[in-house]
């Protein structure tokens, strides 16, 4: 009797969870379906027709082809002749996004780890004050720093360069990164570090040989957050890169894909899916580090 009740309960809980998951993925699924549909069809019917009337679905890969190889633009010249021209493709923007993201993830995490180790394990005057100062920066919204930063960048002639956006992302990401890394690193058992110091390790050695390998779970989760944030960022890119061709990142190109009057959102859907691919891969490949099993076996209790 009791067993049966338990089974019914777990069935209901699992059913509810499944339902929520489905509801959650509906928009993404809609996006996916739309990305396979033709422009005319998109403007006439909703994506669910794929299921309700499969005979009219007319799925196509054209959108992806256009997005990847370059958008076709129809021009009417002065003599009234129609001309089709290929616009630039997403490949360049994809590479630019990578060029922006990788350093903008590595640099703040590296600096944050150094800082967190210092705050957690080194004795220096004003340690607490500095730490509070850094953490206090968490409440400063990045928007208020955009204009002053842009001005300074203008003076330093940094606007529109990768360095500008690396520095910006590093700055904006540091407070949270330092805070998270501090929480993790300060929880590492003191005796491991002391043991290494007795063994003759310098602070630098302790950091590279012990702290960094042991912090992989924290670094991985932080890397995922920071990567998603930088990859999906449009605001910071718009401000510091502007419309400089050749440097534009994926989010900026996606914005143009939709077309001046929003007529091309079948392309946007395809483009959005391409831009989602990398974050998904990053997430899936780093996910196993979320399991905090790495410290097991170091100390007891």
């Amino acid at each position: 009797m009791k067993k049966r009740k338990q089974r019914v309960n777990s069935f209901m809980v699992n059913g509810l969870l499944l339902f929520l998951c489905l509801v959650w993925t509906v928009p993404t699924f809609g996006l996916l379906m739309t990305s396979f549909r033709d422009r005319d069809v998109v403007s006439k019917t909703g994506w669910w027709t794929v299921f309700t009337r499969p005979d009219q679905a007319e799925l196509t890969l054209d959108n992806y082809e256009q997005v990847l190889s370059g958008k076709t633009i129809t021009l009417v010249d002065s003599k009234g002749n129609q001309q089709t021209v290929k616009g630039d493709n997403l490949t360049r923007a994809f590479l630019n996004s990578l060029t922006v993201s990788i350093p903008a993830v590595v640099i703040p995490i590296l600096i944050a780890s150094f800082a967190a180790y210092g705050f957690a394990w080194m004795d220096f005057p004003g340690r607490k004050v500095f730490f509070i100062l850094v953490v206090a920066l968490l409440v400063v919204p990045l928007q208020i720093s955009l204009i002053p930063l842009l001005r300074d960048y203008g003076r330093l002639e940094l606007t529109g360069t990768f360095l500008a956006i690396w520095l910006a992302h590093t700055g904006f990401g540091l407070p949270l990164s330092v805070y998270l890394m501090y929480n993790y690193i300060s929880q590492l058992p003191r005796s491991i570090i002391e043991s290494a110091i007795i063994d003759g390790c310098s602070h630098f050695g302790v950091f590279w040989k012990l702290i960094l390998p042991l912090s992989v779970p924290a670094i991985a989760s932080l890397a995922i957050f920071q990567f998603l944030w930088v990859w999906n960022d449009l605001l910071v890119a718009l401000v510091f890169i502007g419309s400089k061709p050749g440097v534009e990142v994926l989010t900026q190109r996606l914005l143009y894909l939709i077309g001046s009057r929003g007529q091309d959102w079948h392309l946007l859907c395809a483009g959005a899916f391409i831009s989602m691919a990398l974050p998904l891969m990053v997430f899936i490949s780093l996910q196993r580090y979320f399991v905090r099993g790495l410290l097991a076996g170091s100390v007891k209790g």
Partner: peptide, 19 residues
Amino acid sequence: EPKDRDIAMVFQNYALYPH
């Protein structure tokens, strides 16, 4: 410095390097 004192220490929680 601890490393130059020619001592070795064994800790309560072993303090092994887990990796």
